[in-house]
Structure formats: C-alpha cells, structure tokens
C-alpha cells in the first residue's frame, strides 16, 4: 500500500513538473499565474498522498495550510492585476 501511495505522490509530482514547464514557457503572465495555481494544487495533492504513504495524519494540516495560502496568493495576484489607472507593463496583455 505504501508503495502505491508513493507512486501516486510521484505521479502528482510529475504533473507539478509539467505545470512548471508551462509556467516557464508562458508566454503571458496570466499563463504563468494559472500554471502557478496548478503547481499549488499539485503540491496539496502531493502532501496528502505523502501523508498517506507515511501514515502521518499531521501532514494533512500542511495540505490545509497550503490550500488557505494558495487562495491568498490568488487574491494577491488578482489584486496586483486589477486595472487601476494606467499600467505600463505591455508584456502582460499578451
């Protein structure tokens, strides 16, 4: 069973890696932020499966904290992207 959970954790880690590739390639900032959110979700999944693999229920707390702060990161990104007067960063509109 442990091996199975490790395999699941590995698989989730691979999806995180793929999301990271998207974040690297972009091309726009929005793509990167979306990819970052995917990374965040993947990390939560890895934390959960790792907790199961290790039989350590406290790792669920880590997943929970990651969920809360990921939500905060979304809000901060939205705040930083909200149109508020003239913006000069043209690259972001791509």
């Amino acid at each position: 069973m442990t091996g199975l959970f490790y395999a699941a954790a590995m698989a989730l880690l691979v999806t995180v890696a793929l999301a990271l590739v998207r974040a690297w390639k972009g091309p726009g900032t929005i793509d990167r932020i979306m990819a970052a959110q995917l990374v965040g979700t993947g990390v939560i999944g890895v934390a959960l499966t790792l907790g199961a693999a290790r039989g350590d229920a406290t790792m669920l707390d880590a997943a929970l904290v990651a969920t809360l702060l990921a939500a905060l990161a979304v809000a901060a990104f939205v705040a930083s992207r909200a149109p508020r007067g003239a913006r000069k960063d043209g690259e972001d509109r791509s």
Binding site: V16, L20, A23, W24, G26, T29, R32, I33, A35, A36, V39, G40, V43, V46, A47, L50, G51, R54, D56, T58, M59, D61, A62, A66, A73, E91, D92
Partner: peptide, 29 residues
Amino acid sequence: SALGGIVFFIAFGNLLGIAWLSLGAVNVA
C-alpha cells in the same frame, strides 16, 4: 520576467514544504 521569477519562488517554497514533509519535519513544513 520578475513576476515569473516570483511565481517560481512560490512554487519553490511549496516544494520545499514537501521536502520538509519528506524529512518528517511537519512543523517546519
């Protein structure tokens, strides 16, 4: 891109959290 760098920094921090979980250091994670 600086914002891209920050996106990766956040991903980096989350992965470090996983590393601490893997070390069994849930407090630090």
